[in-house]
Design a protein around this nucleic acid. Sequence first.
DNA 1: CAGCATCCCAGGGGATACTG
DNA 2: CAGTATCCCCTGGGATGCTG
Lengths: 124, 124
Amino acid sequence: MEWDGDLAECPVRDVIDRVGDKWSVLLLLELSAGSRRFMVLRRALPDISQRMLTKSLRQLERDGLVSRTVYPTKPPSVEYALTPLGGSLFDTLGNLVRWADSHHGEIRRARAEFDRREGDSAAA
Amino acid sequence: MEWDGDLAECPVRDVIDRVGDKWSVLLLLELSAGSRRFMVLRRALPDISQRMLTKSLRQLERDGLVSRTVYPTKPPSVEYALTPLGGSLFDTLGNLVRWADSHHGEIRRARAEFDRREGDSAAA
DNA sequence: CAGCATCCCAGGGGATACTG
DNA sequence: CAGTATCCCCTGGGATGCTG
């Protein structure tokens, strides 16, 4: 696979940037259980601001990971759902999630030991 | 696996935060090929500032993903290497990287289409 | 060589208020 | 209901300079 250069053009960054932000993964998780309306998502992620909800959903939509369907009812309702691509990404993410789940103990321990060694509050 | 609450305590975030930042993955990649000295890493990632190199390495070290060995030569030399834990994470990351590699075409296409539809420069 | 310390900026992300 | 717009803060991260 070998990546020689230029970070900015790296295809992996596209994905990591989406995975790395605060909400995208949580949204993918929520949508992996089925399509959801805007308000339902808000309630599912109590501490997301609707600014970020909108923004994150647009990002995901732009990247073709999530579909957006508007029903012109009154008041309007909008359904979000994973696309096949989004589902595929979420599956792949599953590996990472499982890794995190089974190794966060080690990580926590490593941190604790590191912080004790260093003394200064490198914790954050 | 089911995660009910509280984002801040989520073990997955620990990992995602590390994976999500700008340099950690690149460093893991570089170190996956063998242990490296500070300067070697700098040259390997030409556009990293040494502030961030230091910081990222400390993070990785703190999380037990990378080991740091000081040789008290003069001038001093420091060797960084993946720990087994770090190697394990890197392997898992491999899935994501492969996914990104094989799907970034779709993503790019989705973006292009989205941007055309929306008109306004939602491009980043 | 390896690395802190300092300054500074861009943007991620929260809170709040307004609209179709 | 499903957004958009505004304001504002805080952190990630670059540039630069100094030390053991």
